[in-house]
């Protein structure tokens, strides 16, 4: 996640001070993402160096120094908003590796390993869900962040469920069983 672009987004609403940017940044991420003031100023300095923001030259350095977005900054922001983040990297997820490894370890039930992780993920999801239980204390940014986290964890649980089912079927049908080396080689080639 880019602090640079998040600050540009806040400045696109109008000129702001550093301290104000810090507060607005935190509230716009539902207070889930703390940001220290030092990081705000370092980022602003870099943005200024790159011509994406400009500051009040007349004012002294410090909390009262105002910043505004430049045309180049607005262009950069628009381009960032519309560029999909890179999600094409091959799966090197630690959990995937654990499940693949469990298949090779004698005496280990891959289904039990899957269940350990499934339970952990569902417990995490229970905790996130509890945060949204009280709707009245729930601001929109926070709701979006919590949903994002729940969907991310949910996707992992679904993968575990699918893996569980696929392995169960494979155990009764040797044709589709992941015969270790062959399976591993295909993954290596794809990388």
């Amino acid at each position: 996640m880019s602090v640079r672009h998040a600050l540009l987004a806040l400045l696109s609403e109008g000129p702001k001070y550093g301290l104000q940017l810090q507060k607005e940044f935190e509230s716009s991420t539902g207070e889930i993402w703390p940001l220290n003031i030092g990081q705000v100023y370092t980022t602003l300095q870099r943005l200024e160096r790159d011509g994406l923001v400009e500051s009040d030259e007349t004012e002294s350095e410090g909390p009262q120094k105002g910043f505004r977005i430049t045309d180049a900054g607005a262009e950069e922001l628009s381009s960032w908003l519309n560029t999909p983040p890179n999600m094409t990297s091959p799966p090197r997820d630690e959990l995937v590796i654990k499940v693949l490894s469990a298949l090779r370890v004698p005496g280990v039930s891959v289904h039990d390993v899957i269940q350990v992780h499934r339970r952990y993920l569902v417990e995490l999801m229970q905790q996130w869900t509890r945060l949204k239980e009280d709707e009245s204390e729930f601001d929109l940014s926070f709701a979006l962040v919590v949903d994002a986290e729940l969907f991310r964890l949910d996707a992992v649980v679904r993968w575990l469920d699918t893996a569980d089912g696929r392995l169960k079927r494979a155990a009764t049908d040797p044709v589709t069983a992941p015969s270790g080396p062959h399976f591993a080689r295909r993954l290596v080639v794809r990388r």
Binding site: R119, W128, E133, L150, L153, R158
Partner: peptide
């Protein structure tokens, strides 16, 4: 899992047996 996560306790069933359950969240 998203529906289940609203529960106080989640019980996991596999092949007709209870294999696991969540512990109460903090």
């Amino acid at each position: 899992a998203q529906l289940a996560s609203w529960a106080d306790r989640v019980v996991f069933l596999r092949d007709g047996r209870v294999v696991d359950q969540t512990t109460p969240p903090p």
